[in-house]
Write a protein that binds this DNA or RNA. Structure first.
Length: 350
DNA sequence: TATATTTGACCCAG
DNA sequence: CTGGGTCAAATATA
């Protein structure tokens, strides 16, 4: 156990000093002669480093007993019409874990659309909106979507879509859960978004109405050509020009659900970061997560949410001893694994 | 008519 | 108690 801590600490220090190094590099790039892309990239890396370091710190306390805290007896929901059945099939058995343990991996995708075409992209699945909430501190409400086939096929996949405070053209989409439904449309991810987010507030939403009709196909077409994976981000440090994406018509998408630092990632690892929200059962994971570099949006408020979520997830994954079925999926997912994480820890995979 | 969205209320974790 | 997530009745849309 102490080995683990040592190891952990080492990589933590390593990560922090890496961040410092990157910051130094950034300083040298501050003069206007160097491209701003370089700077942005460095910022990205710095953020990743610190993010990762923070996550490491978060893991530590959870090393011993990551998940079982307040059992919070699930004995009968106070709600008359028990709507908690969704979770109940997860915490089957007497293992009265927190309900929150429900495998919830969150993927943060940022979508920015350069033209006014509003609309978070869809990943080829059919989503159904089941709620919308005003989030404290956020200007725009957050939309809650679940898989259309939830009741039919028990697909627990959900996603949250929130528009960025500053840039209305940026949507942050958090995916959670995996699709267990057999919807085959994800071969050709349809980027459509028949959502009118803040329509109701302004009564004049005539154009949005028609927008939501036509944009689907256009966006679909555009995106199909503009897709690109964020592979081997780390090796791109000196090769920015090829890094830029060839004609991404709609704008850009950025996936940054991963805490691990690009600087320590080997390309093979990154290569495996295919979108994990695609059902592993239908392993046609040729949907490449589009990605693009944009103004350093990685930091800020959303940093905490993603990191806390990931901590949760990681702990859930780590405690995979008696993991339910869905946890198995996650174990297969490389997304939330960190190359620096002590896999050799006895009992990590047990 | 069937399906999807809206929206206020409810539940739960922190 | 508060804020975030979910439910479900009402409403809108195809």
């Amino acid at each position: 156990m102490e080995n683990v801590e040592n190891w952990d600490q080492k990589s933590l220090i390593n990560e922090l000093s890496q961040g410092m190094e990157l910051a130094k590099q950034l300083r040298t790039h501050l003069d206007p002669s160097s491209s701003h892309q370089t700077r942005e990239f460095l910022v990205e890396k710095i953020l990743s480093s610190f993010e990762k370091a923070i996550s490491m710190l978060k893991w530590r306390p959870s090393a011993g007993e990551p998940t079982v805290e307040s059992p919070r007896s699930v004995s009968g929901s106070p709600r008359s019409h028990d709507s908690g059945q969704v979770f109940k099939d997860q915490d089957h058995k007497d293992v009265s874990k927190k309900r929150k343990i429900l495998p919830r991996w969150t993927e943060q995708v940022r979508v920015c659309l350069e033209n006014g075409t509003e609309g978070p992209l869809d990943d080829g699945y059919s989503w159904r909106k089941y709620g919308q909430k005003d989030i404290l501190g956020a200007k725009h409400p957050r939309g809650y979507y679940r898989c259309t086939h939830r009741h039919v096929q028990g697909c627990l996949a959900t996603k949250q879509v929130q528009r960025s405070d500053e840039d209305p053209s940026i949507f942050e989409i958090s995916y959670r859960g995996k699709h267990t439904c057999s919807q085959a449309s994800h071969l050709v991810p349809a980027y459509a978004s028949p959502r009118k987010q803040e329509t109701k507030k302004n009564t004049d939403h005539h154009q949005q109405q028609q927008q939501k009709q036509q944009k689907s196909q256009e966006i679909l077409l555009n995106f199909q050509t503009g897709l690109r994976v964020q592979s081997d981000l780390d090796t791109q440090e000196h090769t920015f020009p090829p890094f830029s994406f060839p004609s991404t018509p709609i704008g850009c998408i950025k996936s940054e659900n991963h805490i691990f630092s690009p600087s320590t990632l080997d390309t093979s690892f990154m290569g495996s970061i295919s979108p994990s929200f695609i059902s592993p059962a239908t392993s046609e994971s040729n949907f490449s997560m589009p990605w693009c570099q944009m103004n350093s949006y990685g930091g800020g408020h959303n940093l905490q949410t993603s990191e806390s979520d990931l901590t949760e997830i990681i702990s859930a994954t780590t405690s995979g001893t008696n993991s339910p079925i869905l946890d198995l999926d996650f174990a297969l997912d490389p997304v939330e694994f960190d190359p620096n994480f002590p896999f050799d820890t006895p009992g990590f995979f047990s």
